[in-house]
């Protein structure tokens, strides 16, 4: 069921970014793949959120490169919406909440975690273009 919402989330944000309609399903699919990487690794292998985020972003990046070639569109068009389901919104919110309650230890722990999570996303995103672009 969450996969449906991953698709919906990515596809809807893609529409609001004025993406051409023929590329919308691919954007949704990129979101599903990212969620598959994240959710799959967390649930099946019990991996940490960081590793799962890395795998999810990696899949989004690979999907972006492939869709970009297939549809002859810029890669960004698939990566930006595809990444949306992986954004660490809950972590960021909890961090803010701890901050507002002046629970500083818990807040810094949560916010540091969110920052590293974002770093894992960045690392996952950075790899596919670096490797797959060499052939051009």
């Amino acid at each position: 069921m969450t996969y449906f919402f991953a698709f919906l989330g990515s596809a809807a944000i893609a529409v609001s970014f004025r993406m051409p309609l023929r590329a919308i399903p691919a954007a949704g699919l990129a979101g599903v793949l990212g969620w598959l990487g994240y959710h799959g690794f967390t649930v099946l292998f019990g991996a940490s959120p960081m590793l799962s985020a890395f795998v999810g972003a990696l899949l989004v990046g690979i999907a972006g490169e492939l869709f970009a070639r297939k549809l002859r569109e810029p890669t960004t068009m698939f990566i930006v919406p595809g990444l949306f389901p992986l954004v660490p919104g809950l972590m960021a919110y909890s961090g803010m909440l701890f901050l507002a309650r002046e629970e500083m230890v818990a807040a810094s722990q949560m916010l540091t975690r969110a920052a590293f999570y974002a770093g894992a996303l960045a690392a996952g995103l950075a790899l596919p273009p670096a490797i797959m672009r060499r052939r051009q």
Binding site: F17, T75, I79, V80, L83, V87, G89, A92, Y93
Partner: peptide
């Protein structure tokens, strides 16, 4: 509140700028 705000934040967080930053750095 947590899921509602978190969902809202996910759309507001600068995903586009972040993604572009990573891609520009790699390029």
């Amino acid at each position: 509140m947590a899921p509602v705000v978190a969902g809202g934040i996910m759309v507001l967080l600068p995903g586009t700028a972040f993604t572009a930053a990573v891609r520009d750095a790699m390029a």
